[in-house]
């Protein structure tokens, strides 16, 4: 279970589910995790596909953890270089992923062939 201080997480989404490929995401959805609950904290539309620009955008919001589906190594490195924890290779609806994150059970939502 997630407790401790509030944190801001970001989901790379396509519509109401996690985008199967991070780079295809049509929006980054932000959620604040507080008292074992999640609260919507905004949506970042994605004007630029440059990983550095996207990283700067989420860093500016104070995001600490990034959850996504498949992700290119280059994009992942760019995020991690900015100090963001990347939890990739996850599938599911927004709610499933958020609940999985709260309960530390993201392994149940692993994409096939990834063994998260």
């Amino acid at each position: 279970m997630k407790t401790a201080t509030p944190e801001l997480i970001c989901l790379a989404c396509y519509r109401d589910r996690l985008a199967s490929v991070c780079e295809n995401a049509d929006g980054y959805k932000l959620f604040e995790i507080r008292d074992d609950k999640f609260y919507p904290a905004g949506l970042l539309s994605l004007p630029s596909k440059d990983p550095m620009d996207r990283t700067s955008a989420i860093l500016a919001c104070g995001v600490t953890t990034f959850l996504c589906g498949a992700i290119r190594n280059q994009t992942r490195r760019s995020l991690e270089a900015g100090g963001i924890t990347v939890l990739p290779w996850i599938t599911g609806s927004e709610t499933q992923v958020l609940r999985g994150y709260l309960k530390d059970s993201l392994a149940d939502l692993a994409m096939p062939g990834t063994g998260v």
Partner: peptide
């Protein structure tokens, strides 16, 4: 499994 979770292509998601 859903095909987009398996194939993970530049065309998936729309």
């Amino acid at each position: 499994r859903k095909c987009w979770d398996v194939f993970r292509s530049s065309l998936c998601d729309g």
